[in-house]
Design a protein around this nucleic acid. Structure first.
Length: 592
RNA sequence: GGCCCCGUAGUUUAAUGGAUAAAACGAAGGUUUCCGGAACCUUUGAUAGCGGUUCGAUUCCGCUCGGGGCUACCA
């Protein structure tokens, strides 16, 4: 039981015994004391005065006296209005530090038997990954690590939208204009190669549309009349009919794309245990919808389409199957979800998908629940907002600024430049230096993205490159490198058992309290599906450590027990920083 | 039109209904030859507006004003 829980429980017992309050632990508010006041933890007694029938001050005073008696770890307390500020004994905090230090699993929870399937990335295969995919992938990967830390059995899956008219557009342009060029022959990364032909298609279709006599005013309508557009449509039909030549080209081009994607995944450090392909699932779901039809959960509209009425849930009528009996997006998603449940028997299914699809996932979950699938309750849409430029949404045509690979090489380039400028790694061989640039560059990028609450949009100005100072990944990495340097010089760590008489300074105490909170932060981030809580925590810890570092001699401390405590504090801060950063998918270097 | 999300210092972000709203960047000034200055310390400055609930509201509710999204037999 954590100390907060202990204090809550003790408060509950006091109130229930003396005032017959009948409250439970969650009725007690306890938090870390505001830095402006003296104390470690604060109990807010306002909600409790209705039981004690005394003033807030009297209630707090009474509670403080009794808690001090009961808990045995409270050195003193003070009361300000309805706030009871408790100061714990130094020996309690030193014991706590010892406990944390000697538990290598601190911050990770035992297996809870819960299986989670998490789907993320979900790219289209007709163009390269962009900054939105980067946010998606970083969220998906980090969330997986956090769920693992809280005891879940996690399976990461990806789904490739590998079919449809968009892919056919790239294929047509390729057939017409490429003369057999390949990524190998041109030296262009496969996914970019595919994207280039998609761009080419769009250029040609615009040109052709201009040339059409009496073209419709509506641009889309005009483009549909062009020969290149018609070719794309024909290609789609051929593909659906299984035309060998078309399927072979489709496969060849998609393979180029996958090869390109793999490079980006590897660079970013994200991975998947299983891949799904829309080309294999796009026809599924018909049986499932018909099952709902038979159970009279869904109904057939006069026009023949099958729909579900979601107006009782505050949504609209939603079509689930076309009148001609073919699947649409929602149909195959219903089927894929069921398929995954059969495969993995998961308790939770997390979809990391942009908030444009909030409505879609509400429908998906409701429809499955209406079909009577209990496991559908475990569906969670980890919705995140778009990454935008200061002038609004990133458009593909704005070019390199939104491209994932360009963004990554940009931060790596900055990392290299800054590192060389500071000149601290002369002893590194080239390979080590390159690994370091990658660690720092990706640390900056990942932290930049993950520190923001997922539901908030991120404004990214490509003109101002990602920062390496202040509230950033490199700042936290630097703090760890600094700690590592201390630890190298400190040598063998001494036991904390014999320093029980030590008197903690304010910042030392603050550090232990913060580290002590780590497991709560992990749990909370997991429950809320929010890696930004971990990111902000890591920053606070690093900042507090730097403050400590500047005001406290460590290796050159005067008294032996000072040195022992401060070295232990440093080492453990490094350990917790590393754990937290790893949950974000960020490495921390020993030197930088 | 209907539904959903967002609005906090000049900028980018924090704050389970709790104390005088916290940081970073920017700007200005500083850090005992200091264990790593990618650091530390000062100064500067904000809850879009109006009501309501509450002992207490950035947080919950309503309205207004801004920004974005969804509202396909597209994905």
């Amino acid at each position: 039981m954590t100390l907060e829980q202990t204090l809550k429980q003790a408060t509950v017992e006091i109130f229930n015994q003396q005032f017959n309050a009948g409250i439970s632990a969650d009725a007690v508010t306890i938090n870390i004391t505001n830095p402006d006041h003296e104390g470690d933890y604060t109990i807010v007694v306002f909600p409790l005065v209705k039981f004690s029938k005394k003033s807030p001050e009297q209630t707090a005073q009474m509670l403080g006296e009794q808690l001090k008696e009961k808990a045995g770890v409270i050195a003193k307390f003070n009361v300000i209005k309805g706030f009871l500020n408790l100061t714990l004994t130094d020996s309690y905090w030193l014991r706590r530090l010892n406990e944390i230090s000697s538990n290598s699993a601190f911050g990770t929870f035992p297996p809870n038997g819960q299986k989670v399937v998490i789907e993320y990335c979900g790219p289209n295969t007709n163009k390269p990954l962009h900054i939105g995919h980067v946010r998606n992938m970083l969220l998906g990967f980090s969330m997986s690590e956090i769920l693992k830390a809280t005891g879940h059995d996690v399976t990461k899956v990806n789904i490739y939208n590998d079919r449809g008219i968009a892919i056919c557009k790239s294929m047509v342009a390729y057939k017409r204009y490429a003369n057999g060029a390949t990524p190998q022959s041109t030296g262009i990364k496969g996914d970019h190669f595919m994207g280039d032909w998609y761009v080419k298609f769009n250029e040609v279709v615009v040109e052709e549309a201009k040339a059409i006599p009496n073209a419709p005013a509506d641009k889309d309508e005009a483009q549909k009349l062009t020969s290149i557009f018609k070719e794309a449509q024909e290609l789609l039909l051929k593909w659906e009919a299984g035309d060998p030549e078309t399927v072979a080209l489709w496969k060849k081009m998609n393979d180029w794309v996958y090869e390109g994607f793999q490079q980006t995944f590897k660079l970013l450090g994200v991975d998947f245990q299983k891949d799904y392909y829309e080309s294999e699932t796009y026809k599924l779901g018909r049986d499932l919808v018909n099952e709902g039809l038979e159970k009279k959960i869904f109904y057939k509209r006069p026009d023949g389409a099958v729909a579900v009425d979601l107006t009782p849930e505050g949504l609209d009528e939603k079509v689930l199957l076309r009148a001609d009996g073919t699947s649409i997006y929602i149909t195959q998603d219903l089927a894929t979800a069921k398929l995954r449940h059969e495969e993995f028997n998961m308790d939770k299914m997390v979809y990391v998908v942009a908030n444009e699809q909030d409505y879609h996932f509400k429908v998906l979950k409701l429809a499955l629940q209406k079909l009577g699938y209990k496991w559908a309750d475990g569906i969670y849409h980890l919705s995140y907002a778009l990454v935008e430029s200061p002038t609004g949404r990133f458009k593909s045509r704005e070019g390199k600024t939104a491209d994932a690979d360009d963004l990554i090489s940009e931060v790596l380039r900055i990392a290299e430049g800054k590192t060389k400028e500071l000149g601290k790694i002369e002893s590194f061989i080239a390979e080590e230096a390159n690994v370091l640039y990658r660690t720092i560059g990706l640390g900056a990028l990942k932290y930049f993205v993950l520190r923001v609450n997922p539901y908030k949009k991120i404004i990214f100005n490509p003109e101002e490159s990602i920062d390496f100072h202040g509230h950033t990944g490199p700042f936290i990495q630097y703090t760890n490198a600094r700690i590592a340097a201390i630890m190298r010089k400190a040598g063998e760590s001494a036991s904390l058992d014999n320093v029980s008489g030590y008197s903690l300074s304010a910042v030392e105490r603050e550090l232990i309290i913060l580290m002590s909170e780590y497991e709560n932060v992990v749990k909370s981030a997991s429950d809320k599906y929010d890696p930004s809580e971990v990111a902000n925590y890591a920053y606070n810890l690093a900042r507090t450590y730097n403050k400590f570092y500047h005001e406290s001699p460590i290796l050159s401390a005067e008294k032996p027990e000072e040195k022992i405590v401060r070295v232990a504090l440093s080492g453990q801060t490094g350990v917790v920083l590393k754990k937290a950063m790893n949950l974000l998918g960020i490495e921390v270097p020993e030197k930088m």
